[in-house]
Amino acid sequence: MRNSRFLFLILSFPFFLFSCATPPEGQVIEKTELGKVIYAQIYVEGLSCPFCAYGLEKKLKEIEGLLSVKINIDEGRVNLIFEGDRRPAKGKIEAAVNEAGFSARALSYSNTPFL
């Protein structure tokens, strides 16, 4: 009896994790009605596997005013949308990329979406 309880506990752990893991739809801050926004595009080097990119998304989401993050692994490109009309500090975005374990390269801003 004790043994089967032990086996049940260890084998049910992955299922518990899976049930915790499914994020609600739209958790990546997708706003359908955008007011005044600033678009930013940064090239990130070292981004070579999608599973590793979550650390980058997590760090970028800590930046105030961020509405959306889109990551393109093959191009090493991250597109960001910020709320308001003030450009977020370049240092903040680069620091987030570097703290996530990657290397920040060219960062540019635009008032219109990047093609």
Partner: peptide, 30 residues
């Protein structure tokens, strides 16, 4: 569970990619 599912970190070998500051998680395998 394997019947349901048919490049990330290697399975039996350590990966050199860490998830950066505050990166954390859990791994378990049977």
């Amino acid at each position: 569970p394997t019947g349901v599912f048919a490049q990330g970190p290697p399975i039996t070998v350590d990966t050199p990619i860490m998830l950066g500051l505050s990166g954390s998680g859990v791994r378990t395998f049977g």
